[in-house]
Design a protein around this nucleic acid. Sequence first.
DNA 1: CTCAGTGTTCAGTG
DNA 2: TCACTGAACACTGA
Length: 265
Amino acid sequence: MPELPEAEAARRLVQRVLVRRRIVAAAAQDDPIVFAGTSARRVAAWLRGRRVVAARRKGKHNWLELDRRPWLAFHFGMTGDLHVYRRAEDRPAFWKLELVTDDGRRVAFTDVRRFGRIRLLRDPAAEPPISRLGFDALAGLPGAAELQAVLRRRQAPLKAVLLDQAVFAGVGNWIADEVLYQAALSPRRKAASLTLAEVARLRRTLHAIVRRAVDLRGDSDRFPATWLFHHRWGRNAEARTARAERIVHETIGGRTTAWVPTRQR
DNA sequence: CTCAGTGTTCAGTG
DNA sequence: TCACTGAACACTGA
């Protein structure tokens, strides 16, 4: 479940369970795709004995500061997740990495589809992929004027630019659609065409949606009933918003986009 | 059997 | 070089 709200929920979980703890054991499942640029063996060996100093996040990326470098960085891809438990026999299916703390907790990274990544990096914030990220959608959005200056250079559809992690770090497919719906902007608009007032509306709406979703710990069942989120799934022609507006599904910016042409201009 | 999917990267094109 | 588009990646479930 990985957009910014889930990544932030994971950061808080790690903050609570791992920070200030020592890792007394680590196991990793061999997987050359998920363990990018390293290996399961090397990661497990490195983590054993380390103390966790801090839990950081930017966009959809998380990393752990350790008492020695390199540090541990991870990304959830499409299906990555974290699990916390106490008993070894509760180790979840599709686990890639499991840490055991000095107070007996176990934390596992799982990933069914293997688009997630686990890396060892000397300085995660200063190295790709994290160094390539743009404004964090929760904590780093600039003012409307600066944002407009960035968007002015982009001829792509607004939907595609919202998904560009080098501009809006942490925005994924449903957040992009939700923002465009609530800000009443068409996903097809060229990003460069937005007026300052429209950029201000986009910015304010994005921030409000991300903050609300983070406050709800990414628990989508509790998202406000007025959100497009509850009605956008499945490309069915009958789909309507809570206000009974017709929802259409089209591929824009290379992704399925749910939007309401009668409302979004 | 086919297709879509809460993500990212890379090759090809202009 | 840059911006943009579409395919590819791996796997599950409808």
